[in-house]
């Protein structure tokens, strides 16, 4: 058993080396396939992150009336924060709102004069609410409006600016949906194409060895003994191609890093380096599995009879 495995491994390596031209062609094709798969991964990552950063800039604000008591404000704040759709709630107190107003209008004399003439702080507290998904803002707004409308005494909520933001929120929701669908479709097409190309290349590589396979059978080699070296070669194609594709990606990432940083506010090179073991695993894993399955299927054809 052990001797058998050792012989299969040795035959695999020797075969890889002696069929250098065929091996090189297979490695090249798998490298291209992995490059395509890797690129779709990076593009997807780029899109997701830049959409996320866009999303995080969208929020809705709830303005409270100045006379609202702290308890009432806190009650709404806790209720909103407890909603499952809500990602974050930022609270600005009346004093903070005033300080921010002063800061923003410090060069506006009229505004400052008007403020000075008032005895008390005319600004209410407010909440800035961020949802997990842009499509969830509508629910949150509805929740707040119900809250406002059901108030029995004087309402605490002065204004909810959802309606004002609605248009841009809707536009963003649509764009995100469309981009995600398009990128999934493109990825699928590219990945299926690269798998088919890899499969066909390995099939051709093994086609050139069909005569050898029939000779091995005539000499009385068992199917596993024949298949083993080809399977190992498939794995080796995948491994080498994985390493090659990473070697191609590295300089591209170095070049792209600062450029994506400027445009998408996302540094692809930093992502590449900090997730290197993950990317390494995925690319080499896909390469190995592709090579292995293609070999098994291709050899199976010639082992029948």
């Amino acid at each position: 058993m052990l001797t058998g495995i050792r012989r299969i491994v040795k035959a695999g390596f020797v075969g890889f080396w002696r069929n250098a031209y065929v091996s090189l062609a297979s490695v090249f094709v798998i490298t291209v396939a992995l490059f395509v798969i890797g690129s779709t991964m990076f593009i997807d990552q780029l899109l997701t992150t830049s959409l996320q950063s866009l999303q995080s800039k969208v929020d809705i604000n709830v303005y409270f009336v100045p006379s609202a008591s702290q308890d009432e404000v806190d009650a709404i704040r806790t209720a909103v924060a407890a909603l499952p759709d809500v990602a974050a709630v930022t609270y600005t107190s009346r004093e903070e709102a005033l300080a921010r107003y002063r800061e923003r209008n410090q060069n506006d004399e009229i505004a400052m004069q008007a403020l000075a003439e008032l005895d008390e702080n005319p600004l209410g507290a407010n909440l800035a609410i961020q949802a997990r998904e842009t499509s969830q803002y509508e629910n949150i707004a509805r929740f707040l409006e119900e809250r406002r409308d059901s108030a029995t005494q004087t309402p605490v909520i002065d204004e909810i600016n959802y309606e004002r933001n609605k248009e841009s929120i809707d536009a963003l929701t649509n764009i995100i949906g469309a981009v995600e669908q398009a990128s999934i479709a493109t990825m699928l097409v590219l990945i299926v194409a690269s798998i088919l190309i890899t499969f066909n290349t390995i099939r051709l590589a093994i086609y050139t060895a069909r005569e050898e396979i029939s000779i091995m059978r005539l000499v009385g080699a068992s199917n596993m003994f024949i298949r083993g070296p080809f399977m190992l070669q498939g794995v080796m194609y995948g491994l080498v191609a994985g390493v090659f594709s990473l070697m191609i990606f590295y300089p591209i990432m170095v070049w792209l890093g600062p450029r994506t940083e400027a445009f998408f506010e996302f540094n692809l090179f930093t992502y590449f380096i900090s997730n290197f073991s993950y990317i390494f695993g995925v690319l080499i894993g896909i390469g190995v599995v592709l090579g292995l399955i293609s070999s098994v299927l291709a050899v199976a054809r010639y082992l029948r009879v």
Binding site: E212, I215, V219, G220
Partner: peptide, 16 residues
């Protein structure tokens, strides 16, 4: 098949 030795007109040797 291991009990039988085979020889062919076209030799059928493994080229590599």
């Amino acid at each position: 098949r291991r009990k039988i030795g085979t020889v062919f007109q076209d030799f059928k040797l493994l080229p590599h």
